[in-house]
Structures are given as structure tokens and as C-alpha cells.
Write a protein that binds this DNA or RNA. Sequence first.
DNA 1: GTACTCCGTAAGTAGTAACTTACGGTAAGT
DNA 2: ACTTACCGTAAGTTACTACTTACGGAGTAC
Lengths: 100, 100
Amino acid sequence: MQTYQDGLAALGDPTRRAIFELLAEGPTPVGELAALLPVSRPAVSQHLRVLTEAGLVRVRAEGTRRLYHLDPAGLAAVRDYLDRFWARALADFKTAVEES
Amino acid sequence: MQTYQDGLAALGDPTRRAIFELLAEGPTPVGELAALLPVSRPAVSQHLRVLTEAGLVRVRAEGTRRLYHLDPAGLAAVRDYLDRFWARALADFKTAVEES
DNA sequence: GTACTCCGTAAGTAGTAACTTACGGTAAGT
DNA sequence: ACTTACCGTAAGTTACTACTTACGGAGTAC
């Protein structure tokens, strides 16, 4: 689906952010992610499902392992969303400072 | 606080995203935001509190009204966070495509 | 085939957070 | 002073979601 909405909702959870940041160090299997996190392996699987549906992450099978890695598409969607507000945020902030 | 973590957590909620997007059209008082949304005015106040603590939004009083507007600081924190993963996402995605 | 590894899904629980109504406080107008 | 407009906070409820354990499927090795 990879909309910015799903992306932001997915990254709103701290555990999913942790997974996301671990994946930034390179493609990683589920078990290794779970070993590095304070939650169970099924919990990691469930988070990976959300991240995948948000378009932030992708899988490729390699034997019995499933290597997850970042997907630029979802990342770009979120980044572009935030960029749309950048100019307006600067303008509003500027007038707010001037009037104070 | 304006960390990227608070920013992402704040924007994870769809109602707060709606408020955030309404504020992108210019500084707006609480009552007007509530009139444009399917939730009560106190609910909007509570969301604005979260957005403010995340550094995404600021207030200035104007008579009895309180005008909320976007704050570039929190926005930049979230955007910069995502940018840190951009290069790695592209690299991982590229190798994934090549191996498929 | 059997065994073992790696993983996703189902089902159930507990904690959180988004919402409501009710209340109080401040600023401007008459 | 009284009233009205605008707003934040407190308290309570409900719905969601992140988590656990239990189970089953798919792949590899023997």
C-alpha cells in the first residue's frame, strides 16, 4: 500500500522504529531481530507485517530464513509528505516570532 | 522536547495528522479545528497538547483565542531522521532486486 | 521418512490512549 | 458586576493494539 499514512502509523510504535533502525544496518532475518529486541519472535513477525504493508520493508526468502530489508518506496512517501509542510511551517513560524 | 521519536509518535494518530494538515493552511484557533473535525473540542485540545510537546506545533494567544501554527523544529527532526536511512534503503533494495 | 530449523498465524490477555461529558478559568463586551 | 466566547483540565469509559503462548507449515539435512 505504501501510503504516507500507513508509514507514519507504522513508525509511531517504538518497537517498530527499533526494528526499522536495525534493518538500516543491513538485511536481517527475523530470529536475529528478535534476539536483539526485548520482545518475542512472533511479536517481531507481527511488526514486520505492519511495516511491510506500510511499504517500509520488503522480504526475500533464503532457505528457511526470510531476510527483511528497507524499502525506499515507503520511506520516500513519508519524507515527501513531510516536505509538503516545510515551507508553510517556516512561514507561520516566522510571522509568529515577529508578532511576539 | 522535539525529538524525532515524539514527532513520529504524534503523527502516528490519524486525528493528529488531520489537525497537522489543517494547520498547514495557516494558524488556526482550537474551535475552528474542532468544527472541521469529527471529534469534540476537548479532544482537539488534547491532541494539540501532544503535538506541542512533540515540537511540531506552537501557540500564540490572541485575545481569548489561541492560535496554533506549525513549528519547523519538530518537522525538521522527523525529516532528518528519515533521511538517515535513505542511502541504506536504496542500497539494500538494489541488491534485493539483483538477487531476485 | 524423520528430525531440526526458521518462521507466520491464531487466540487470548493486559495495558494504553483516544474519546466523551462536566467543570473551571481567563479575556472582552455591555 | 454580569454575560458571553474561547479554551484547558479532570475523570471516566471504551476500543484498540502490542504482547504472550500454542500451533502448524515450509525448507534443509540425514
